[in-house]
Amino acid sequence: MLEDEHLILELRRGDKRALRQIYLKYKDYLLTIAASLLHDYCAAEDVLHDVFVSFAAGAGNIELRVSLRNYLVAGIANRVRDIYRKKKHPTVALDKDCRVSSDSGDPVKSAIFGEEFHLLADELSRLPFEQRETIILHIKGGMTFRDIARMRGVSTSTVQGRYRYGIDKLRTALNGERKK
């Protein structure tokens, strides 16, 4: 935590090394969250790119009231949500090579997490976005239900409900796979 505070101070002074260090520290973590939400490596890379470039552009004025990690995770979650909104608007074209494919169940894309996790990744991608987002932000992003509720403008109990339903669905689906 102290390391992050120091990096932010250096970043405010325009130190590129601090920016690089922050990127190297969080890149895999943020990419994993983006890919878990999008189920698409290519789109996840673009999200990581956009969030980090935007973060760098505002670096001179940055003042964090949450941890740097939570700040970046929130940036990833919001950008992913933007992509899902675009998806609902056919007038906005998505990059051909980075199409959001969360509902496709495409085995090639689900293999981004490796064989060990492909079943879980597939089932995650079949959850409604809100449930998937809550599960990933809570477990992988380390955000509390309350933080997620504030970020999304809903009650904490709604977030807890999304989490519970989502986890139950995952368990049921994965148990079904095991019986096969």
Binding site: F113, I136, R171
Partner: peptide
């Protein structure tokens, strides 16, 4: 371990790296 045994733990272990 089957992921259904502990979904939360399995999600926690998800990891991919940037190129």
């Amino acid at each position: 371990m089957n992921p259904a045994d502990n979904v939360e733990q399995t999600i926690e272990k998800l990891h991919i790296s940037t190129k």
